[in-house]
Write a protein that binds this DNA or RNA. Structure first.
Lengths: 242, 242
DNA sequence: TGAAGTTGTCTATTAGCATAGACAACTTGA
DNA sequence: TCAAGTTGTCTATGCTAATAGACAACTTCA
């Protein structure tokens, strides 16, 4: 039933958008993969770059692709399944999903324990802490920003260590802790503030999942307490109570 | 695979044209019948009359409808243009007309050559043959029934092969023949017999064009000889003498 | 650090889409 | 013959699609 030229009466941008969508659906462009550059797409469809941009804009609006300035346009991965268990390791979860986990230090600074932080960490109010602000990514996609607090006495120079190892697991291993587990997890949601939105490459007004968690060593001694903000549109938590 | 709104990026006249074409294809507007007036169509699609006119113009250009000033616009009963050349391929002719060629096996059986069949195929009288009865369609419209005879020695199991490939071109390709041409074509007409009328979905007493033809390979060796019965009201043969 | 390559944004122009109204030309049926 | 209804043609206007070029902003990699 599909008619004449199949071209006349159908806007070019629409033809391009449909073509790319078909490419994604048929797996020619895999999830998370980078699409050809706008110029290259324009050449293959023999069309102006602006027309390609319009096609990509409609796909982006529907969440099929995501453009990253200076880098490229990527096929949007489905939400990262993020199981919440007592043994929760960002790198393992992301790796299990077939993605490459990355971490980068945003900022490390000294801090002092508020009453709540002190209670979580089993310290006294006002105790010296190291505060680590980090961004975690799956491949090139930012997943979450987390603010972690550790005892400055037990983990001196934790900031510098994290900057080099880029992983909380490796950081605590550096201090001789080979295993730890999640002792508490609280989840809520909020709108990303300006700096988190920028780190996570989120549009203004987009929601984040806020996770407060504390990890303890096998003895039950608190190691680190965190507040993580996950880009809600990129992850879904799986709670399995076993 | 058809995407978003299904409206954005598709011109209104195109949507109207497609809608009317679907109406014709599904039989809501029968062949020869009068379409609603341009004003009425404009109202049902909530569109300007000029937009309807454009839609009708494209349909008229393709021969699906015909406008008569002062009277109305009518669904054209269009005959499939069927050029008769030395290179005659049903699938190519139908495809070139913007239709989807189809074929289906009615029956395959063993036969022996009459004197005439033997002469056409360059065999001896009584030589073993394969007889293939097939129906050929454009889109869903039956076009012709053809009875083909091939040498059983040269093309063993031709019937089973045809049943799977559904194309004479592909059948002979299966036996290593990559090209062939029409060596002789004779045309006459008759009234469809009961079984042909049923296959072709023709009313009783309707005429068929009877075409006797023989195809030969590049060496001039006969491959297949056929008697085809075309629904006369659906095709017109074009003889181009160049 | 710098060059190359990427996406984002701006201005400008041309062509096509869609609407609106009016009237001519023609057919049909009362 | 006339009125109603049909398609054909003209003018006009506003909006969208598509092209083109230039440059900014940013990322990546050597």
């Amino acid at each position: 039933m599909s008619m004449q030229d199949a071209a006349t009466g159908v806007a070019l941008w629409r033809q391009v958008a449909d073509g790319i969508e078909r490419g994604i659906a048929e797996g020619r462009f895999a999830a998370g993969e980078k699409l050809p550059g706008e110029m290259e797409i324009a050449e293959t469809y023999r069309v102006n770059r602006h027309t390609v941009r319009r096609a990509l804009a409609t796909l982006a609006e529907r969440g099929l692709v995501r453009a990253e300035r200076g880098s490229g346009t990527y096929v949007e991965t489905q939400r990262l399944a993020y199981p919440l268990r007592s043994r929760t390791r960002f790198s393992e979860i992301v790796g299990a999903g077939g993605h490459e986990p990355r971490g980068q230090l945003i900022e490390a600074s000294d801090d002092v324990a508020t009453r709540e932080l002190a209670r979580e960490l089993g310290l006294k109010t006002g105790a010296p802490l190291v505060r680590i602000e980090a961004l975690r990514l799956a491949d090139r996609t930012p997943i979450c920003v987390s603010t972690s607090w550790l005892s400055a006495e037990r983990f001196p120079d934790a900031g510098q260590v994290f900057a080099s190892v880029r992983s909380m697991t490796k950081l605590v291993a550096h201090y001789g802790i080979r295993d730890y587990r999640r002792s508490s997890t609280r989840i809520t949601a909020a709108i990303a503030d300006a700096s988190d939105a920028a780190r996570l490459d989120l549009a203004l007004g987009r929601p984040v999942l806020v996770v407060d968690s504390t990890d303890v060593d096998p003895d039950g001694t608190p190691i680190v307490t965190k507040r993580s903000r996950f880009a809600a549109e990129r992850v879904e938590f799986l709670v399995d109570n076993t």
